[in-house]
Design a protein around this nucleic acid. Sequence first.
DNA 1: CCCGCGGCTGATTCTTGAATCAGTAGGGGT
DNA 2: ACCCCTACTGATTCAAGAATCAGCCGCGGG
Lengths: 231, 231
Amino acid sequence: MTAQNPAADGPGGESAAGQDRKATILRAAIDVFATKGYHGCRIADVAREAKVAYGLVYHYFKNKDELLQSVFRVGWDFFVGRVKEAIAANGELESRIRGICDVCFEAYRKDPRAVRVLVLQVARSPAIGGRSRQTAFEEIIGLCTAMFTEARAAGQLRAGMDPTLAALLLFGALEMGLTAFVVGLSDASDPAALERAKAQIADSFLNGMLAPEAEWKSERSATRSRAARRS
Amino acid sequence: MTAQNPAADGPGGESAAGQDRKATILRAAIDVFATKGYHGCRIADVAREAKVAYGLVYHYFKNKDELLQSVFRVGWDFFVGRVKEAIAANGELESRIRGICDVCFEAYRKDPRAVRVLVLQVARSPAIGGRSRQTAFEEIIGLCTAMFTEARAAGQLRAGMDPTLAALLLFGALEMGLTAFVVGLSDASDPAALERAKAQIADSFLNGMLAPEAEWKSERSATRSRAARRS
DNA sequence: CCCGCGGCTGATTCTTGAATCAGTAGGGGT
DNA sequence: ACCCCTACTGATTCAAGAATCAGCCGCGGG
C-alpha cells in the first residue's frame, strides 16, 4: 500500500511521473512477453516485473491486448522509421539493402528482447494484434516493394524478378537469420557472429538479386559494388 | 475409467474405426488451429469440426497440448521425410535446392491448412510444443547444413559462406514466400503465382549462393544455371 | 438372456487468470 | 479549511474453457 508518488501534476496536465510509470510497465511487458510469451504470462507477471501494483497496469492500459498492442506499436514504428531512414539516406540499391540489414541487426544488438517479441510473438499469430499485424506487415513490404520497383525501373533487378517477392525474400532472410540468434541456434553473445551473419545475408541476397553487368544501363554513379562482387 | 488400452479391439466394430476417429479429430484440429489459432479455439470447436462428442477428444488425446503436439509431429515428420527424399534423390546442389522448394510448395498446394499451422502456429511460440519446436527446427536446419557443407567441400559454395547460415536463408526465403500466400498477401488461388514464386525463390537463392564461374573447380557436371544467369 | 467391456457421450466441476472496484494517499486549488 | 482530482492499490468478482466423470449403447460370449 502507501502510494509513494512524490510527483503529481496539476489537473488537466499530463504527469511526467505518470508517463514514467507507463514506460516502466511497457518495458516490463516487453521483457515478460519475450521470455514467457503473450499467452504464457499473466498480467501479474508484468506487474511484478515492473514492480508495480497489479491494478496500475489497468490504470494505464485498457486490457492485456492493448498492452501487447502498445508494445508492438512502439517497437514497430521505431523499426519502420529506421528502415525509412536507411532507404532515404542511400541512393543506391546495394547500400540501401545493407542499410536495412544494419538496422535489423543493430536493433537486435541494442534490444534483443524487443526484437524477440516482434519476431516471435506479434509477427505471426492470427488473433494477436488483430488487423494491425496484417497492416504492419504490408507496411514494410510495401515500402521495400517500392524501393525494388524503382530499382527495377533503373534496370538493377535481375530480369523477371518481382519486386514484392524481392521484398519478401529480403525480410525472410533477415528474419530467419535473426531467429537463429533469438532461438539460440546461433551464438548471440558473440558480436562477431552477428556481424558475419549480417554481411552474409546482405551478400547472398544482393548477389542473387542484382542484375548481371551485361544488362546494366547504369546512369547511376559507377558502382564499387561491382568490384566487391568480383572478389 | 481411463480406457487406455491400445491393444483392445472391439468385436464387429474393429479398432480400425477407432483409428479412423482419431484421424478425423486430428484433421479437424489442423483445420481449427489453422483458422482460429491454438489459443483462439476451444476443444469444443475441434469436436464440432470433427462432428464428434466433446469427451471423445479427451479419449484419444491426453489434453489440448498433446493434440497440438500430435498435429505438429505428424505434419513435421512428413515434411522432413519429403525433404530427405528430395536431397537423396538428387546428387547436385542446384537440383536438390529446387527439389526442396518443390516439396514446400507442393505441401502448401496439397494442404494449405496444415502448412499454415506449421508455419504460423508451431514454428514460432515459446511455450507451444515445449522443446520439440527447438528440436524440430534444428532437425531441418541440420539436415540442410550437412548438404551445404558437402557442397562447400566440392567448391560449389560462394567463398566464405557459412553452411548453417545458408540453410537458414533457404528456409527463411521459403517460409516468407509461403507466408505471403498464407497471410493473403499473394494470391493463393492462382497456381501460376505459386509456380512463379517457387521458381523465383530458387533462382534468387541459387544465384546468390553458387560460387561465381571464376572460382569453380567443377568436377561436377557444368550447370545450366550459369547460362540461365547470363540471360 | 444377461453380463461386461470398450467406444463413446456431454453436462458438471474446477482452475485459471482477466478485469473490476471500493478504497487510500496526497497535493493543489479555492 | 475543505474538496476534489489524479495516481495508485490489491482483494474480489466473474467468465471462459480445460478436464472430469458418471453413465449410455451395442455386441459377443457365457
